[in-house]
């Protein structure tokens, strides 16, 4: 390791600071005692679902669709999660079922 303890600490503090900036920024710019602009209210409303969609895609960012197993285990397992959830509508069952299925796939088949 090339850094001293102090330098490591400063680096960690910078990362904490950066993370907190991204989390606190909207709340500092749009404090509750002032009326939030209409456009920002609109964004707040539509962004929650769009950001959730981004989060779903984010889970696939490291899946190699052109190499290895071509993302087959991931795609099949997501299909299992969706089917289980539409069928039974039990959150834990869908999550546990899909995850176990995925583990079986990657440990034994792919």
């Amino acid at each position: 390791m090339t850094m001293t303890i102090t330098q490591q600490l400063i680096t960690i503090i910078m990362i904490v600071l950066g993370t907190m900036l991204t989390r606190f920024f909207p709340f500092i710019v749009f404090p509750p005692n002032k009326t939030t602009p209409r456009y920002i209210q609109y964004l707040g409303e539509v962004l929650s679902l769009a950001a959730l969609a981004l989060l779903v895609v984010y889970c696939f960012k490291d899946v190699g669709f052109l190499t290895g197993s071509h993302g087959f285990p991931e795609i099949i397992s997501v299909a299992v999660v969706i089917l289980l959830h539409v069928w039974k509508g039990k959150m834990l069952l869908s999550i546990a079922g899909g995850t176990l299925f995925y583990m079986l796939l990657v440990q034994n088949i792919f």
Binding site: G18, T19, T22, R23, P26, I40, G44, E45, A51
Partner: peptide, 13 residues
């Protein structure tokens, strides 16, 4: 962590 900005905006209310 830029995506947190999105979360913040939608949690303002």
């Amino acid at each position: 962590n830029g995506r947190h900005l999105f979360y913040g905006l939608s949690m303002l209310e």
